[in-house]
Computed example of a mutant assay.
Amino acid sequence: MDSQAQTLARGLKILDLLADAGRPLTIAEIAAGLEVHRSIAYRLVRTLETAALVLRDSSGRYLPGPHLATLARSVAPDLQSAAPAVLQSLADELSMTAFLVVLDRTECVTLVTVEPRHVIASIAQRPGSRHSIFVGAPGVAIQSLLTSSERTSMGIAEPEQPEVAIARRDGFALSHGEVIPGVSAVAAPVRGAVRAAVAVLYITAEEGEVVNAVRAAASLLDRSNR
């Protein structure tokens, strides 16, 4: 790897470290995560800070910067624009938290989340949260969108799991306690340019009603994901 490519790779790794940490990091922690000297980490962070991709708090620690939000808005803009209204309707209909996840390499990342109105308590799902596509209904739903060649290029082992084929056939996936203990999920794939899925979280529910509502919401978003 040439020096410019290495610098870029390290800069991107810093953004991943900050996003995954969920809290501000010191230069020492960033350097440790990169496995480089603190002086190298500092130079990289200063470049990112100049571009507003990284911010420094009052204690001198670093966290993701505001320009990342600007970049995030350009990810599937039509889908992001359509999702809140569709998810709000779904959340209110089922009295459940509804959210949209997209594929990021081999992880599901929550892009938009909506909690039901007029409900005292619901299960939280924070935007930006992520989990492997190999666990949970959203992961199975998104896997059902992948072709064999896409799985190979992503390094995903063949053959695919039986639940993926079932989700492709039925248009939805179910999971129970795989991501959050005691919590079930229903997810339906959103077809189009961006690999995505609509999902809801619940403790107990009539699954048939939930499945139909989630599939209908995903179908509405299919039209925005072009």
Rank of each mutant, 00 (worst) to 15 (best):
V179H: 10
A213E: 12
P159R: 12
I142Q: 13
A188E: 11
V211N: 02
A216K: 13
E207L: 11
F134D: 13
E178S: 09
L221Y: 03
V179L: 12
A188G: 06
I133D: 12
I133W: 12
A216C: 01
E209I: 06
V164F: 14
A218I: 06
F134V: 01
V164G: 10
G182R: 10
V179D: 08
S175N: 08
V210N: 04
D170E: 15
T152A: 15
L145F: 07
L201V: 09
P189F: 07
L201T: 10
V179C: 06
A216Q: 13
I203D: 08
G139W: 10
G208I: 01
I156H: 04
E158Q: 15
L174D: 04
A193R: 15
A199D: 13
R191F: 03
S184R: 06
S175F: 09
I133G: 07
G177K: 01
R169A: 14
R195Q: 13
V164Y: 14
F172I: 05
R168D: 08
S148D: 13
Q161Y: 09
A199K: 04
A167D: 05
I142R: 04
E158G: 15
A193L: 11
A173L: 07
L174T: 08
P159T: 06
P138E: 06
G177I: 00
N212T: 11
P189R: 06
E160H: 04
A173T: 04
N212S: 13
L220Y: 07
Q143K: 13
V164I: 15
R151W: 03
A193F: 10
G155Q: 07
A205P: 00
A199S: 15
I180Y: 12
T204I: 00
T147H: 02
E163M: 10
P138N: 06
A141V: 02
V214I: 05
V210G: 03
A193K: 14
P189W: 11
A173D: 06
N212G: 03
V211C: 03
R151D: 03
G177C: 00
A187N: 11
V186P: 01
A165T: 10
D222Y: 14
A173G: 07
A218W: 09
G155T: 03
V214M: 04
L145V: 04
V210A: 05
S144L: 07
V190H: 09
A216T: 11
G136I: 07
S144K: 04
G155S: 09
L146M: 09
A157H: 15
R168P: 09
R195S: 12
S149H: 08
R215E: 13
A167K: 04
D222S: 14
L201F: 13
G139D: 10
Q161V: 06
L174R: 11
L221N: 01
A205V: 00
I203E: 14
R169Y: 10
G139H: 09
T147Y: 01
D222E: 15
P162R: 03
